[in-house]
Lab assay of single mutants.
Amino acid sequence: QVALSRTQVCGILREELFQGDAFHQSDTHIFIIMGASGDLAKKKIYPTIWWLFRDGLLPENTFIVGYARSRLTVADIRKQSEPFFKATPEEKLKLEDFFARNSYVAGQYDDAASYQRLNSHMNALHLGSQANRLFYLALPPTVYEAVTKNIHESCMSQIGWNRIIVEKPFGRDLQSSDRLSNHISSLFREDQIYRIDHYLGKEMVQNLMVLRFANRIFGPIWNRDNIACVILTFKEPFGTEGRGGYFDEFGIIRDVMQNHLLQMLCLVAMEKPASTNSDDVRDEKVKVLKCISEVQANNVVLGQYVGNPDGEGEATKGYLDDPTVPRGSTTATFAAVVLYVENERWDGVPFILRCGKALNERKAEVRLQFHDVAGDIFHQQCKRNELVIRVQPNEAVYTKMMTKKPGMFFNPEESELDLTYGNRYKNVKLPDAYERLILDVFCGSQMHFVRSDELREAWRIFTPLLHQIELEKPKPIPYIYGSRGPTEADELMKRVGFQYEGTYKWVNPHKL
Protein backbone atom coordinates (compact mmCIF):
# COMPACT_ATOMS: atom_id res chain seq x y z
CA GLN A 1 0.00 0.00 0.00
CA VAL A 2 1.03 3.58 -0.70
CA ALA A 3 0.17 6.03 2.08
CA LEU A 4 0.31 9.64 0.90
CA SER A 5 -0.50 12.66 3.03
CA ARG A 6 -2.51 15.61 1.71
CA THR A 7 0.74 17.63 1.61
CA GLN A 8 2.46 14.97 -0.53
CA VAL A 9 -0.51 14.73 -2.92
CA CYS A 10 -0.54 18.52 -3.33
CA GLY A 11 3.24 18.51 -3.80
CA ILE A 12 2.83 16.07 -6.72
CA LEU A 13 0.03 18.22 -8.19
CA ARG A 14 2.14 21.40 -7.86
CA GLU A 15 5.03 19.71 -9.63
CA GLU A 16 2.73 18.64 -12.49
CA LEU A 17 1.20 22.12 -12.77
CA PHE A 18 4.46 24.07 -12.65
CA GLN A 19 6.14 21.85 -15.24
CA GLY A 20 3.40 22.52 -17.80
CA ASP A 21 3.35 25.50 -20.15
CA ALA A 22 -0.35 26.23 -19.63
CA PHE A 23 -0.24 27.17 -15.91
CA HIS A 24 1.13 30.73 -15.58
CA GLN A 25 2.28 30.60 -11.96
CA SER A 26 3.77 34.10 -11.74
CA ASP A 27 1.07 35.99 -13.72
CA THR A 28 -1.63 37.97 -11.95
CA HIS A 29 -5.05 36.28 -12.07
CA ILE A 30 -8.46 37.59 -11.01
CA PHE A 31 -11.15 35.03 -10.15
CA ILE A 32 -14.54 36.76 -10.33
CA ILE A 33 -17.54 35.04 -8.72
CA MET A 34 -20.74 36.35 -10.30
CA GLY A 35 -23.53 35.58 -7.83
CA ALA A 36 -21.20 35.68 -4.82
CA SER A 37 -24.07 35.94 -2.33
CA GLY A 38 -25.76 32.73 -3.50
CA ASP A 39 -25.81 29.16 -2.22
CA LEU A 40 -23.45 27.71 -4.82
CA ALA A 41 -20.83 30.39 -4.13
CA LYS A 42 -21.13 29.97 -0.37
CA LYS A 43 -21.09 26.16 -0.25
CA LYS A 44 -18.89 25.25 -3.21
CA ILE A 45 -16.94 28.00 -4.97
CA TYR A 46 -15.49 29.98 -2.07
CA PRO A 47 -14.53 26.76 -0.17
CA THR A 48 -12.92 25.31 -3.34
CA ILE A 49 -10.86 28.46 -3.98
CA TRP A 50 -9.80 28.40 -0.31
CA TRP A 51 -8.66 24.74 -0.53
CA LEU A 52 -6.65 25.47 -3.67
CA PHE A 53 -5.10 28.54 -2.02
CA ARG A 54 -4.34 26.65 1.20
CA ASP A 55 -2.61 23.85 -0.71
CA GLY A 56 -0.50 26.23 -2.81
CA LEU A 57 -2.22 25.24 -6.06
CA LEU A 58 -3.32 28.70 -7.24
CA PRO A 59 -1.01 31.07 -9.15
CA GLU A 60 0.73 33.16 -6.48
CA ASN A 61 -0.84 36.52 -7.48
CA THR A 62 -4.50 35.52 -7.48
CA PHE A 63 -7.25 37.91 -6.36
CA ILE A 64 -10.85 36.85 -5.70
CA VAL A 65 -13.62 39.35 -6.47
CA GLY A 66 -17.23 38.67 -5.51
CA TYR A 67 -20.07 40.35 -7.43
CA ALA A 68 -23.81 40.26 -6.65
CA ARG A 69 -26.80 42.54 -6.16
CA SER A 70 -26.74 42.33 -2.34
CA ARG A 71 -24.86 45.09 -0.52
CA LEU A 72 -22.27 42.97 1.27
CA THR A 73 -18.72 43.23 2.55
CA VAL A 74 -15.90 40.67 2.54
CA ALA A 75 -16.71 40.13 6.23
CA ASP A 76 -20.27 39.12 5.25
CA ILE A 77 -18.97 36.73 2.57
CA ARG A 78 -16.57 35.26 5.13
CA LYS A 79 -19.32 34.79 7.71
CA GLN A 80 -21.58 32.86 5.31
CA SER A 81 -18.94 30.75 3.53
CA GLU A 82 -16.31 30.00 6.21
CA PRO A 83 -18.41 27.27 7.95
CA PHE A 84 -17.94 25.23 4.72
CA PHE A 85 -14.13 25.71 4.63
CA LYS A 86 -13.33 23.01 7.22
CA ALA A 87 -10.33 25.14 8.25
CA THR A 88 -8.26 23.99 11.25
CA PRO A 89 -6.97 26.33 14.02
CA GLU A 90 -3.44 25.91 12.57
CA GLU A 91 -4.65 27.44 9.30
CA LYS A 92 -5.77 30.72 10.92
CA LEU A 93 -2.94 32.84 9.46
CA LYS A 94 -3.38 31.30 6.01
CA LEU A 95 -7.10 32.06 6.25
CA GLU A 96 -6.41 35.74 7.02
CA ASP A 97 -4.08 35.89 4.02
CA PHE A 98 -6.80 34.32 1.84
CA PHE A 99 -9.47 36.85 2.83
CA ALA A 100 -6.97 39.71 2.39
CA ARG A 101 -6.99 38.76 -1.33
CA ASN A 102 -10.80 38.93 -1.44
CA SER A 103 -12.90 41.95 -2.35
CA TYR A 104 -16.56 42.50 -3.18
CA VAL A 105 -18.49 44.75 -5.56
CA ALA A 106 -22.28 45.20 -5.43
CA GLY A 107 -24.13 45.84 -8.68
CA GLN A 108 -27.07 44.91 -10.88
CA TYR A 109 -26.84 42.11 -13.45
CA ASP A 110 -28.34 44.16 -16.30
CA ASP A 111 -26.78 47.57 -15.63
CA ALA A 112 -23.77 48.66 -17.74
CA ALA A 113 -22.60 51.21 -15.13
CA SER A 114 -22.32 48.43 -12.49
CA TYR A 115 -19.95 46.47 -14.74
CA GLN A 116 -17.87 49.57 -15.44
CA ARG A 117 -17.49 49.93 -11.67
CA LEU A 118 -16.48 46.25 -11.43
CA ASN A 119 -13.89 46.76 -14.19
CA SER A 120 -12.44 49.86 -12.47
CA HIS A 121 -12.20 47.86 -9.25
CA MET A 122 -10.28 45.05 -11.02
CA ASN A 123 -7.95 47.50 -12.77
CA ALA A 124 -7.12 49.03 -9.37
CA LEU A 125 -5.80 45.67 -8.07
CA HIS A 126 -2.03 45.06 -8.33
CA LEU A 127 -1.34 44.60 -12.09
CA GLY A 128 -5.12 44.21 -12.45
CA SER A 129 -5.38 45.82 -15.89
CA GLN A 130 -3.13 43.14 -17.43
CA ALA A 131 -4.35 40.21 -15.30
CA ASN A 132 -5.87 36.99 -16.64
CA ARG A 133 -9.59 37.05 -15.77
CA LEU A 134 -11.74 34.04 -14.93
CA PHE A 135 -15.48 34.68 -14.53
CA TYR A 136 -17.55 32.03 -12.69
CA LEU A 137 -21.29 32.42 -13.41
CA ALA A 138 -22.89 31.06 -10.21
CA LEU A 139 -26.21 32.45 -11.37
CA PRO A 140 -29.66 31.36 -12.59
CA PRO A 141 -29.70 30.91 -16.39
CA THR A 142 -32.34 33.67 -16.69
CA VAL A 143 -29.63 36.33 -16.23
CA TYR A 144 -26.88 34.67 -18.34
CA GLU A 145 -27.59 36.75 -21.45
CA ALA A 146 -27.43 40.12 -19.67
CA VAL A 147 -24.39 39.14 -17.58
CA THR A 148 -22.30 37.73 -20.45
CA LYS A 149 -23.13 40.74 -22.66
CA ASN A 150 -22.02 43.19 -19.94
CA ILE A 151 -18.87 41.22 -19.10
CA HIS A 152 -17.93 41.25 -22.79
CA GLU A 153 -18.58 44.97 -23.16
CA SER A 154 -17.00 46.25 -19.93
CA CYS A 155 -14.90 43.71 -18.02
CA MET A 156 -12.56 41.91 -20.42
CA SER A 157 -8.81 41.98 -19.85
CA GLN A 158 -7.09 43.68 -22.79
CA ILE A 159 -3.74 41.95 -22.17
CA GLY A 160 -4.35 38.68 -20.26
CA TRP A 161 -6.71 35.85 -21.19
CA ASN A 162 -10.45 35.82 -20.39
CA ARG A 163 -12.35 32.62 -19.52
CA ILE A 164 -15.93 32.10 -18.44
CA ILE A 165 -17.37 29.18 -16.44
CA VAL A 166 -21.06 28.45 -17.02
CA GLU A 167 -23.03 26.25 -14.59
CA LYS A 168 -25.84 23.89 -15.62
CA PRO A 169 -28.68 23.90 -16.51
CA PHE A 170 -27.62 24.93 -20.01
CA GLY A 171 -31.21 25.62 -21.11
CA ARG A 172 -34.38 23.55 -20.67
CA ASP A 173 -34.50 21.89 -24.09
CA LEU A 174 -32.79 21.96 -27.49
CA GLN A 175 -34.32 25.29 -28.50
CA SER A 176 -33.49 27.23 -25.31
CA SER A 177 -30.03 25.65 -25.15
CA ASP A 178 -29.35 26.65 -28.78
CA ARG A 179 -30.49 30.19 -28.03
CA LEU A 180 -28.16 30.45 -25.01
CA SER A 181 -25.25 28.81 -26.88
CA ASN A 182 -25.64 31.12 -29.87
CA HIS A 183 -25.74 34.15 -27.59
CA ILE A 184 -22.63 33.18 -25.60
CA SER A 185 -20.68 32.11 -28.69
CA SER A 186 -21.43 35.49 -30.31
CA LEU A 187 -19.47 37.08 -27.43
CA PHE A 188 -16.77 34.50 -26.59
CA ARG A 189 -14.71 31.98 -28.54
CA GLU A 190 -15.32 28.28 -27.76
CA ASP A 191 -11.86 28.07 -26.13
CA GLN A 192 -12.97 30.77 -23.64
CA ILE A 193 -16.21 28.98 -22.60
CA TYR A 194 -16.14 26.31 -19.87
CA ARG A 195 -19.52 24.59 -19.39
CA ILE A 196 -19.03 22.82 -16.09
CA ASP A 197 -20.46 19.39 -15.28
CA HIS A 198 -18.87 18.58 -11.93
CA TYR A 199 -19.27 14.83 -12.55
CA LEU A 200 -16.51 15.08 -15.16
CA GLY A 201 -14.16 16.16 -12.35
CA LYS A 202 -14.70 13.02 -10.28
CA GLU A 203 -11.69 10.72 -9.97
CA MET A 204 -13.44 7.55 -11.10
CA VAL A 205 -15.09 9.22 -14.09
CA GLN A 206 -11.66 10.45 -15.19
CA ASN A 207 -10.24 6.98 -14.47
CA LEU A 208 -12.59 5.46 -17.08
CA MET A 209 -10.39 6.66 -19.93
CA VAL A 210 -7.20 5.27 -18.39
CA LEU A 211 -8.90 2.00 -17.51
CA ARG A 212 -10.13 1.55 -21.08
CA PHE A 213 -7.24 2.80 -23.15
CA ALA A 214 -4.19 1.97 -21.01
CA ASN A 215 -5.04 -1.72 -20.44
CA ARG A 216 -4.77 -4.32 -23.20
CA ILE A 217 -7.11 -6.75 -21.42
CA PHE A 218 -10.19 -4.53 -21.81
CA GLY A 219 -9.79 -3.61 -25.50
CA PRO A 220 -10.86 -6.94 -27.07
CA ILE A 221 -13.90 -7.43 -24.79
CA TRP A 222 -15.29 -3.87 -24.89
CA ASN A 223 -17.98 -4.49 -27.52
CA ARG A 224 -21.37 -6.02 -28.40
CA ASP A 225 -19.90 -9.53 -28.75
CA ASN A 226 -19.06 -9.65 -25.03
CA ILE A 227 -21.13 -6.99 -23.27
CA ALA A 228 -24.84 -7.73 -22.79
CA CYS A 229 -25.81 -4.35 -21.32
CA VAL A 230 -24.45 -1.24 -19.59
CA ILE A 231 -26.17 0.28 -16.55
CA LEU A 232 -25.41 3.85 -15.46
CA THR A 233 -26.83 4.64 -12.03
CA PHE A 234 -27.22 7.76 -9.90
CA LYS A 235 -29.09 7.26 -6.61
CA GLU A 236 -29.70 9.71 -3.76
CA PRO A 237 -31.09 8.56 -0.39
CA PHE A 238 -32.79 11.90 0.36
CA GLY A 239 -35.73 13.79 -1.13
CA THR A 240 -36.05 17.47 -2.02
CA GLU A 241 -36.24 18.52 1.66
CA GLY A 242 -37.84 21.92 1.17
CA ARG A 243 -36.02 22.70 -2.11
CA GLY A 244 -38.64 21.06 -4.32
CA GLY A 245 -39.77 24.34 -5.87
CA TYR A 246 -36.48 24.68 -7.76
CA PHE A 247 -36.30 20.96 -8.58
CA ASP A 248 -39.89 20.93 -9.86
CA GLU A 249 -38.96 23.40 -12.57
CA PHE A 250 -36.47 20.92 -14.07
CA GLY A 251 -37.18 17.35 -12.90
CA ILE A 252 -34.78 14.42 -12.61
CA ILE A 253 -34.09 13.99 -16.37
CA ARG A 254 -32.81 17.55 -16.77
CA ASP A 255 -31.17 17.56 -13.34
CA VAL A 256 -29.09 14.37 -13.63
CA MET A 257 -29.74 12.16 -16.65
CA GLN A 258 -29.31 14.49 -19.62
CA ASN A 259 -25.92 15.64 -18.27
CA HIS A 260 -24.12 13.49 -15.65
CA LEU A 261 -25.30 10.06 -16.85
CA LEU A 262 -25.03 10.87 -20.55
CA GLN A 263 -21.47 12.11 -20.03
CA MET A 264 -20.56 8.83 -18.31
CA LEU A 265 -22.19 6.91 -21.18
CA CYS A 266 -19.95 8.76 -23.65
CA LEU A 267 -16.80 7.78 -21.76
CA VAL A 268 -17.89 4.11 -21.73
CA ALA A 269 -18.93 4.00 -25.39
CA MET A 270 -16.48 6.26 -27.23
CA GLU A 271 -13.64 5.09 -29.48
CA LYS A 272 -10.01 5.71 -28.53
CA PRO A 273 -9.23 9.40 -29.21
CA ALA A 274 -6.22 10.41 -31.32
CA SER A 275 -4.65 11.88 -28.15
CA THR A 276 -5.61 13.17 -24.71
CA ASN A 277 -5.93 16.65 -26.21
CA SER A 278 -9.25 18.24 -25.12
CA ASP A 279 -10.82 18.43 -28.56
CA ASP A 280 -9.68 14.95 -29.62
CA VAL A 281 -11.51 13.51 -26.59
CA ARG A 282 -14.61 15.66 -27.12
CA ASP A 283 -14.71 14.78 -30.84
CA GLU A 284 -15.13 11.10 -29.89
CA LYS A 285 -17.85 11.90 -27.35
CA VAL A 286 -19.82 13.82 -29.98
CA LYS A 287 -19.54 10.84 -32.38
CA VAL A 288 -21.14 8.59 -29.73
CA LEU A 289 -24.02 11.03 -29.14
CA LYS A 290 -24.68 11.28 -32.88
CA CYS A 291 -25.23 7.50 -32.94
CA ILE A 292 -28.00 7.67 -30.32
CA SER A 293 -31.59 8.09 -31.51
CA GLU A 294 -34.18 10.14 -29.63
CA VAL A 295 -35.58 8.41 -26.53
CA GLN A 296 -38.60 6.17 -27.24
CA ALA A 297 -41.49 6.47 -24.77
CA ASN A 298 -41.79 2.65 -24.44
CA ASN A 299 -38.22 2.62 -23.06
CA VAL A 300 -38.97 5.03 -20.21
CA VAL A 301 -40.22 4.59 -16.62
CA LEU A 302 -41.00 7.68 -14.53
CA GLY A 303 -41.57 7.64 -10.77
CA GLN A 304 -42.32 10.00 -7.89
CA TYR A 305 -41.59 9.17 -4.26
CA VAL A 306 -44.29 8.97 -1.60
CA GLY A 307 -43.84 8.96 2.17
CA ASN A 308 -42.88 5.76 3.96
CA PRO A 309 -45.47 5.13 6.71
CA ASP A 310 -42.87 3.09 8.63
CA GLY A 311 -40.12 5.69 8.16
CA GLU A 312 -38.87 8.46 10.42
CA GLY A 313 -38.49 12.22 9.91
CA GLU A 314 -38.15 13.20 6.23
CA ALA A 315 -38.78 9.60 5.10
CA THR A 316 -42.45 9.92 6.10
CA LYS A 317 -42.93 12.76 3.59
CA GLY A 318 -43.60 12.32 -0.10
CA TYR A 319 -42.52 14.70 -2.86
CA LEU A 320 -45.95 16.36 -2.86
CA ASP A 321 -45.67 16.98 0.91
CA ASP A 322 -42.81 19.43 0.24
CA PRO A 323 -44.49 22.84 0.75
CA THR A 324 -42.42 24.39 -2.07
CA VAL A 325 -43.71 21.87 -4.67
CA PRO A 326 -46.78 22.94 -6.71
CA ARG A 327 -49.92 21.09 -5.66
CA GLY A 328 -50.57 17.93 -7.70
CA SER A 329 -47.21 18.18 -9.51
CA THR A 330 -46.46 15.33 -11.95
CA THR A 331 -42.70 16.02 -12.01
CA ALA A 332 -40.66 12.80 -11.91
CA THR A 333 -38.17 12.25 -9.08
CA PHE A 334 -37.07 8.92 -10.62
CA ALA A 335 -36.39 7.95 -14.22
CA ALA A 336 -35.13 4.84 -16.01
CA VAL A 337 -34.40 5.20 -19.72
CA VAL A 338 -32.93 2.79 -22.28
CA LEU A 339 -30.72 4.19 -25.05
CA TYR A 340 -28.98 2.42 -27.93
CA VAL A 341 -25.69 3.48 -29.54
CA GLU A 342 -26.27 2.49 -33.15
CA ASN A 343 -22.75 1.80 -34.38
CA GLU A 344 -20.61 -1.24 -35.15
CA ARG A 345 -19.21 -1.61 -31.62
CA TRP A 346 -22.47 -1.26 -29.68
CA ASP A 347 -25.32 -2.24 -32.02
CA GLY A 348 -28.12 -3.85 -29.97
CA VAL A 349 -26.51 -3.28 -26.54
CA PRO A 350 -28.93 -1.48 -24.19
CA PHE A 351 -27.50 1.42 -22.18
CA ILE A 352 -29.79 1.72 -19.16
CA LEU A 353 -29.74 5.10 -17.39
CA ARG A 354 -31.30 5.16 -13.90
CA CYS A 355 -31.49 8.04 -11.47
CA GLY A 356 -33.68 9.05 -8.59
CA LYS A 357 -34.18 10.76 -5.25
CA ALA A 358 -35.34 9.24 -1.94
CA LEU A 359 -33.95 5.80 -2.85
CA ASN A 360 -32.40 3.09 -0.67
CA GLU A 361 -28.77 4.28 -0.89
CA ARG A 362 -26.36 6.90 -2.16
CA LYS A 363 -24.62 5.51 -5.22
CA ALA A 364 -23.24 6.52 -8.60
CA GLU A 365 -21.73 3.78 -10.73
CA VAL A 366 -21.14 2.33 -14.18
CA ARG A 367 -21.88 -1.41 -14.49
CA LEU A 368 -21.01 -3.45 -17.57
CA GLN A 369 -22.74 -6.84 -17.57
CA PHE A 370 -21.18 -9.45 -19.85
CA HIS A 371 -22.93 -12.22 -21.80
CA ASP A 372 -23.37 -15.69 -20.28
CA VAL A 373 -20.46 -18.11 -20.67
CA ALA A 374 -20.97 -20.24 -23.79
CA GLY A 375 -21.05 -24.03 -23.37
CA ASP A 376 -21.92 -24.15 -19.66
CA ILE A 377 -20.48 -27.22 -17.84
CA PHE A 378 -21.42 -26.12 -14.31
CA HIS A 379 -25.16 -26.90 -14.40
CA GLN A 380 -26.32 -23.27 -14.62
CA GLN A 381 -24.54 -22.28 -11.41
CA CYS A 382 -22.58 -19.51 -13.17
CA LYS A 383 -23.73 -15.91 -12.95
CA ARG A 384 -22.78 -13.22 -15.44
CA ASN A 385 -19.47 -11.38 -15.06
CA GLU A 386 -19.71 -7.65 -14.35
CA LEU A 387 -17.20 -4.82 -14.37
CA VAL A 388 -18.23 -2.11 -11.91
CA ILE A 389 -16.78 1.39 -11.65
CA ARG A 390 -18.11 2.92 -8.43
CA VAL A 391 -17.94 6.73 -8.66
CA GLN A 392 -19.34 7.45 -5.20
CA PRO A 393 -19.27 6.76 -2.32
CA ASN A 394 -16.15 4.63 -1.66
CA GLU A 395 -14.51 4.93 -5.09
CA ALA A 396 -13.87 1.45 -6.43
CA VAL A 397 -13.27 -0.68 -9.51
CA TYR A 398 -14.03 -4.38 -9.29
CA THR A 399 -14.92 -7.30 -11.53
CA LYS A 400 -17.62 -9.68 -10.39
CA MET A 401 -16.52 -13.16 -11.43
CA MET A 402 -16.87 -16.85 -10.62
CA THR A 403 -14.34 -18.82 -8.57
CA LYS A 404 -14.34 -22.33 -7.13
CA LYS A 405 -16.05 -22.68 -3.77
CA PRO A 406 -13.67 -24.27 -1.19
CA GLY A 407 -14.40 -27.99 -0.93
CA MET A 408 -14.23 -31.30 -2.78
CA PHE A 409 -16.30 -30.47 -5.85
CA PHE A 410 -16.27 -28.03 -8.76
CA ASN A 411 -18.92 -25.71 -7.35
CA PRO A 412 -18.53 -22.12 -8.62
CA GLU A 413 -19.43 -19.10 -6.48
CA GLU A 414 -19.43 -15.35 -7.01
CA SER A 415 -16.38 -13.38 -5.93
CA GLU A 416 -14.62 -10.24 -7.09
CA LEU A 417 -11.32 -9.19 -8.59
CA ASP A 418 -10.71 -5.92 -6.79
CA LEU A 419 -8.96 -3.03 -8.51
CA THR A 420 -9.94 -0.47 -5.89
CA TYR A 421 -8.03 2.77 -5.30
CA GLY A 422 -8.38 2.47 -1.54
CA ASN A 423 -6.37 -0.75 -1.49
CA ARG A 424 -3.34 0.67 -3.23
CA TYR A 425 -3.56 4.28 -2.06
CA LYS A 426 -4.48 4.10 1.61
CA ASN A 427 -6.10 7.21 3.12
CA VAL A 428 -5.10 9.42 0.20
CA LYS A 429 -7.24 12.58 0.20
CA LEU A 430 -7.77 13.35 -3.47
CA PRO A 431 -8.85 16.82 -4.63
CA ASP A 432 -12.61 17.04 -5.11
CA ALA A 433 -14.30 17.53 -8.50
CA TYR A 434 -14.63 21.32 -8.27
CA GLU A 435 -10.94 21.70 -7.29
CA ARG A 436 -9.82 19.72 -10.34
CA LEU A 437 -12.14 21.53 -12.72
CA ILE A 438 -11.24 25.03 -11.53
CA LEU A 439 -7.54 24.11 -11.86
CA ASP A 440 -8.31 22.89 -15.39
CA VAL A 441 -9.70 26.34 -16.22
CA PHE A 442 -6.56 28.04 -14.88
CA CYS A 443 -4.57 25.66 -17.12
CA GLY A 444 -6.80 26.21 -20.15
CA SER A 445 -7.70 22.50 -20.36
CA GLN A 446 -11.24 21.89 -21.66
CA MET A 447 -11.18 18.07 -21.71
CA HIS A 448 -13.56 17.77 -18.76
CA PHE A 449 -15.94 20.49 -19.94
CA VAL A 450 -18.89 20.24 -22.32
CA ARG A 451 -18.48 21.60 -25.86
CA SER A 452 -21.38 23.31 -27.66
CA ASP A 453 -21.92 20.52 -30.24
CA GLU A 454 -21.85 17.92 -27.44
CA LEU A 455 -24.49 19.87 -25.54
CA ARG A 456 -26.65 20.18 -28.66
CA GLU A 457 -26.60 16.41 -29.31
CA ALA A 458 -27.45 15.65 -25.66
CA TRP A 459 -30.52 17.90 -25.84
CA ARG A 460 -31.52 16.45 -29.23
CA ILE A 461 -31.77 12.98 -27.63
CA PHE A 462 -34.00 14.06 -24.73
CA THR A 463 -36.01 17.08 -25.98
CA PRO A 464 -38.86 15.14 -27.72
CA LEU A 465 -39.42 13.08 -24.54
CA LEU A 466 -39.32 16.19 -22.32
CA HIS A 467 -41.83 17.98 -24.58
CA GLN A 468 -44.10 14.90 -24.61
CA ILE A 469 -44.01 14.76 -20.77
CA GLU A 470 -44.83 18.49 -20.52
CA LEU A 471 -47.70 18.15 -22.99
CA GLU A 472 -49.31 14.92 -21.72
CA LYS A 473 -48.33 15.26 -18.02
CA PRO A 474 -48.31 11.47 -17.40
CA LYS A 475 -48.73 10.53 -13.75
CA PRO A 476 -45.43 9.14 -12.46
CA ILE A 477 -45.47 5.74 -10.72
CA PRO A 478 -45.41 6.16 -6.92
CA TYR A 479 -42.54 4.49 -5.03
CA ILE A 480 -41.88 4.40 -1.30
CA TYR A 481 -39.20 6.71 0.17
CA GLY A 482 -36.14 4.51 0.83
CA SER A 483 -37.03 1.80 -1.73
CA ARG A 484 -35.16 0.77 -4.91
CA GLY A 485 -37.65 2.78 -7.01
CA PRO A 486 -40.64 1.57 -9.06
CA THR A 487 -40.65 -2.19 -9.78
CA GLU A 488 -41.59 -1.26 -13.37
CA ALA A 489 -38.00 -0.01 -13.79
CA ASP A 490 -36.67 -3.47 -12.86
CA GLU A 491 -39.10 -5.00 -15.36
CA LEU A 492 -37.87 -2.63 -18.10
CA MET A 493 -34.26 -3.58 -17.38
CA LYS A 494 -35.13 -7.27 -17.47
CA ARG A 495 -37.03 -6.84 -20.74
CA VAL A 496 -34.00 -5.32 -22.51
CA GLY A 497 -31.63 -8.03 -21.26
CA PHE A 498 -30.24 -7.17 -17.80
CA GLN A 499 -30.06 -10.12 -15.40
CA TYR A 500 -30.37 -9.20 -11.73
CA GLU A 501 -29.33 -12.12 -9.54
CA GLY A 502 -29.45 -10.50 -6.09
CA THR A 503 -27.13 -13.22 -4.77
CA TYR A 504 -23.90 -11.20 -4.68
CA LYS A 505 -22.93 -8.74 -1.95
CA TRP A 506 -20.02 -6.41 -2.61
CA VAL A 507 -17.50 -6.31 0.24
CA ASN A 508 -16.35 -2.72 0.74
CA PRO A 509 -12.52 -2.96 0.74
CA HIS A 510 -12.31 0.47 2.41
CA LYS A 511 -13.65 -1.17 5.58
CA LEU A 512 -11.52 -4.31 5.59
Rank of each mutant, 00 (worst) to 15 (best):
R254W: 01
R254E: 00
D255L: 04
V256R: 04
Q258M: 00
Q258G: 06
L262F: 10
Q263I: 03
M264D: 02
L265M: 12
L265R: 02
L265F: 12
L265I: 08
C266I: 05
A269V: 06
M270G: 08
E271N: 07
E271K: 07
E271M: 05
S275V: 05
S275M: 05
S275Y: 03
T276N: 11
T276S: 11
N277P: 04
N277T: 13
S278E: 10
S278Q: 11
D279L: 11
D279Y: 11
R282T: 05
R282I: 04
D283F: 01
D283Q: 03
K285W: 02
V288F: 09
V288S: 08
L289K: 01
I292V: 13
I292E: 05
S293Y: 10
E294R: 11
V295Y: 09
V295N: 08
V295T: 10
Q296C: 14
A297W: 15
A297I: 14
N299G: 09
N299Y: 10
Q304H: 05
Y305P: 00
Y305Q: 01
V306L: 12
V306R: 14
V306P: 00
G307R: 09
N308K: 15
P309F: 10
P309R: 11
D310V: 11
G311P: 09
G311R: 14
G311T: 11
G311M: 13
E312W: 12
G313N: 13
E314M: 10
E314D: 14
A315L: 13
A315S: 15
A315F: 09
K317Q: 14
L320H: 13
D321I: 04
D321S: 12
D322L: 05
T324I: 07
T324L: 12
V325W: 07
P326L: 07
R327T: 12
S329K: 04
T330D: 10
T331L: 00
V337C: 15
V338E: 13
V338H: 09
L339A: 13
V341S: 03
V341G: 02
V341C: 12
E342N: 14
N343G: 07
R345V: 11
W346N: 00
W346R: 02
D347L: 10
P350F: 03
P350T: 01
P350I: 01
F351N: 01
L353T: 03
R354K: 12
G356K: 02
G356F: 02
K357T: 00
A358R: 06
A358Y: 04
L359R: 01
N360D: 15
R362C: 08
K363D: 06
K363S: 05
K363P: 03
A364K: 05
E365N: 05
E365G: 04
V366Q: 01
V366E: 01
R367M: 00
H371S: 12
H371F: 07
V373I: 09
I377R: 07
F378E: 04
H379P: 15
H379C: 12
Q381C: 09
C382P: 15
K383Y: 15
K383P: 14
R384K: 13
N385K: 03
E386R: 03
L387E: 05
L387S: 02
V388W: 03
V388H: 01
I389S: 01
I389C: 12
R390E: 07
R390K: 11
R390C: 09
V391W: 03
P393Q: 08
N394Y: 13
T399N: 07
T399K: 00
K400R: 11
M401R: 05
K404M: 05
G407D: 12
F410E: 09
N411I: 13
P412I: 12
E413M: 11
E413R: 09
E416V: 04
T420R: 06
T420G: 08
Y421N: 01
K426C: 11
P431S: 10
A433K: 00
Y434I: 02
E435H: 09
R436F: 03
R436E: 01
L437D: 05
L437V: 08
I438L: 12
L439E: 08
L439W: 12
L439I: 09
D440P: 01
V441E: 02
F442S: 02
F442T: 13
C443M: 11
S445A: 15
Q446D: 01
Q446H: 01
Q446P: 04
H448Q: 09
F449G: 05
R451P: 06
S452P: 06
E454C: 02
E454M: 02
R456E: 08
W459K: 02
R460P: 00
R460G: 08
R460I: 03
P464G: 12
P464D: 11
L465R: 06
L466E: 05
L466W: 00
H467I: 09
H467W: 11
E470I: 07
L471D: 13
E472H: 14
K475I: 14
P476M: 08
P476R: 00
I477N: 13
P478V: 09
Y479S: 06
Y479A: 00
I480F: 15
Y481N: 13
G482T: 04
S483W: 06
T487S: 14
E488F: 08
A489D: 03
E491R: 13
E491V: 15
E491L: 11
E491H: 14
L492T: 08
M493H: 10
M493S: 15
M493Y: 12
M493F: 12
R495T: 13
V496S: 11
G497W: 05
G497N: 15
F498E: 03
Q499L: 12
Y500I: 06
Y500V: 07
G502C: 12
G502W: 08
G502R: 09
T503G: 13
T503A: 08
T503K: 15
K505S: 15
K505Q: 15
K505F: 14
K505G: 14
W506L: 05
W506M: 05
